[in-house]
Computed example of a mutant assay.
Amino acid sequence: MAELQSSLLLRKQLNDLKKNPVEGFSAGLCDDSDIYNWEVLIIGPPDTLYEGGFFKANLTFPKEYPLKPPKMRFLTEIWHPNIDKNGNVCISILHEPGDDRFGYEKASERWLPVHTVETILISVISMLADPNDESPANVDAAKEWRQNYQNFKRRVAQCVRKSQEMD
């Protein structure tokens, strides 16, 4: 039953995005027969270091969606404090619901069933513009962001150039 509800909800969100595209990203299914695996293209937000980049990612939804969050992983190389070296996105709203066992995040900052594909991707775009270097998934990028910003900017610029060359 939960699987049926989650697939109906995801199908509705997909149709909503097709009818009303949101600036900054596009999203669709990796394979039309699997509503739980989405491919995403995030366009580097204007006035950020990522401007002009085209970053591909996958969103993988659990059958328990919307009670549990999806996982997001960038396929395009990206240098960012909140994206680990394998491309996995570490952002509060994608963390399991409830209290953080480390006490870092409030339950209200974590996954809530009201989130949609649109709110997730808008949050990720916002994260690109404003990294959280206090809770990094990529410690090296966070350290560079704080201590050697010029080098950080160079690394990001390389990722943006590479993303423009991908087909």
Rank of each mutant, 00 (worst) to 15 (best):
E3M: 12
L4T: 12
Q5V: 09
Q5R: 14
Q5N: 12
S6I: 08
S6C: 10
L10K: 03
L10W: 02
R11T: 15
K12C: 03
N15S: 12
D16W: 01
L17G: 06
K18P: 00
K19L: 13
K19E: 11
N20T: 10
N20Q: 11
P21F: 00
P21G: 03
V22K: 09
V22R: 07
E23T: 11
G24R: 08
F25G: 02
D31F: 08
D31A: 07
D32Q: 14
D34L: 02
D34R: 04
D34C: 09
I35M: 15
N37G: 05
W38P: 01
W38K: 00
E39H: 09
V40C: 07
G44Q: 07
P45T: 02
P45K: 08
P45M: 04
P45Y: 06
P46D: 13
P46C: 11
T48R: 08
Y50D: 02
F54H: 14
N58Q: 15
T60D: 10
F61H: 05
P62A: 08
K68Y: 09
P69M: 06
P69S: 07
P69W: 06
P70D: 05
P70I: 05
K71G: 03
R73V: 11
R73A: 07
F74W: 08
L75V: 10
T76L: 04
E77D: 13
H80F: 08
H80A: 03
P81H: 04
N82E: 05
I83T: 00
I83E: 02
K85T: 15
N86H: 10
G87P: 03
V89P: 01
V89G: 00
C90Y: 10
S92P: 02
S92K: 03
I93D: 04
I93R: 01
E96R: 11
G98V: 03
D99N: 14
D100M: 05
D100I: 01
R101I: 15
Y104L: 13
E105T: 05
R110F: 07
W111G: 02
L112A: 12
P113L: 06
V114H: 11
H115L: 05
V117S: 05
E118D: 10
T119V: 08
L121Y: 07
L121C: 07
I122W: 00
V124E: 04
I125E: 00
S126L: 09
S126W: 08
S126Q: 12
M127S: 00
M127H: 02
L128Y: 03
A129M: 03
D130A: 13
D130C: 10
E134N: 15
S135G: 08
D140P: 00
A142W: 00
A142E: 05
A142H: 01
K143V: 13
K143W: 13
W145D: 02
W145N: 08
Q150D: 15
Q150C: 03
N151I: 11
F152R: 01
F152L: 05
K153F: 02
R154Q: 14
R155V: 11
V156L: 07
V156Q: 05
A157D: 11
R161L: 13
K162D: 15
D167W: 08
